[in-house]
Design a protein around this nucleic acid. Structure first.
Ligand SMILES: [Zn+2]
Ligand SMILES: [Zn+2]
Ligand SMILES: [Zn+2]
Ligand SMILES: [Zn+2]
Lengths: 168, 168
DNA sequence: GTCATGTTGATACCCTGTATCAATTTTGTC
DNA sequence: GACAAAATTGATACAGGGTATCAACATGAC
């Protein structure tokens, strides 16, 4: 505690879960915590050439398991990671630049819980992702490099039909 | 119309979108429409040894684009496809057997629309997946082969905090 | 038929990630 | 500090899912 000036949040979480705070892990965490936006695993790999690819992936997985980061999918399925700042939350992801924000919505959670009565089986988890174009990307459609993170598929248009189960 | 006794839904959708109803496509559609549960692409590949892998993937992509099938992710990220029976919907997926069901929930959609006021940027799509253990799997935890489709990460436990944005 | 266009399938390739396993670090314990 | 046990690393190979290429082939319009 004293010989190491600052021990970051992520480091504390790892320690609290019984993992060792090795140098590679500290370097990875250092990079992650500086990230303002979502990132890919390979991005981290190339930012830390001294650390093996396997170690990067292993550490990302560890950090997911202890809840320090989230792994989410773009509309096209491409995976993306993002530091986790609060316990239970969901994400908005900019389909242009990959910016990830977290949000909490108790109403939504409450509604899902209510829905569990109408769903066969027991709910063991859920995922809610909102795909957006962020304010920055709305304005300058040029300055940032577009990541083409959008996709076809489930970019649902909204409608207002009644809640209804539709079978398998 | 007359020379072909039955023209399935999926075939009609493809035709309506200007694609050709080739033999490979018809065979693939035949297999897909018989599926009662979710399926993987490779599953289709091995069920149709006469058809090239690329064609299978291309056709699956096509069918996604015209809205005939959905591609979703298990909790662990593994992709899974499922025939789409209604326009806008979301999914419940059994984490044990991969059974996919669709559901509509207008309240949910309405709530998301309301939420869009609190979210920076414009929402261009959303994804809502409920991970469940289906009734069948609840009972016989043995008879079906477990697919290990669960995962760590975002299997959110529920909580009831107030709706609140949490920054990037 | 003939030509333009759409499709196919074999192949090679890319991306994301994991299994292996010997070499190295870290952590305790003396 | 020395030492042994346990955790971790990194090189490599591999797996899974999917796409780019491109020559051969089918389709449809004329
Ligand atoms: Zn953006
Ligand atoms: Zn939630
Ligand atoms: Zn099941
Ligand atoms: Zn919806």
């Amino acid at each position: 505690m004293t010989e190491q000036a600052v021990r970051s949040n992520f480091m504390a979480i790892l320690e609290d879960n019984g993992y060792r705070l090795t140098l590679p892990r500290r370097e990875i965490i250092g990079v992650l915590e500086a990230k303002q936006e979502g990132f890919t695993a390979e991005e981290i790999v190339s930012e830390l050439p001294g650390i093996g690819r396997a170690t990067i992936y292993r550490t990302l997985k560890l950090l997911q398991e202890v809840g320090a980061i989230c792994r989410l999918n773009m509309l096209n399925g491409a995976p993306r990671y993002s530091p986790s700042r609060v316990e239970h939350h969901h994400h908005t992801v900019c389909v242009r630049c990959g910016l990830v924000s977290e949000f909490r919505a108790a109403t939504l959670e409450r509604f899902l819980r209510a829905l569990s009565g109408e769903i066969p089986g027991v709910i063991v988890g859920h995922r809610i992702d909102l795909y957006v174009t962020c304010p920055t990307c709305l304005q300058d459609e040029q300055s940032r490099p577009a990541l083409h993170l959008h996709g076809h598929g489930h970019a649902h248009a909204h409608d207002d039909s009644l809640a209804e189960l539709v079978g398998s």
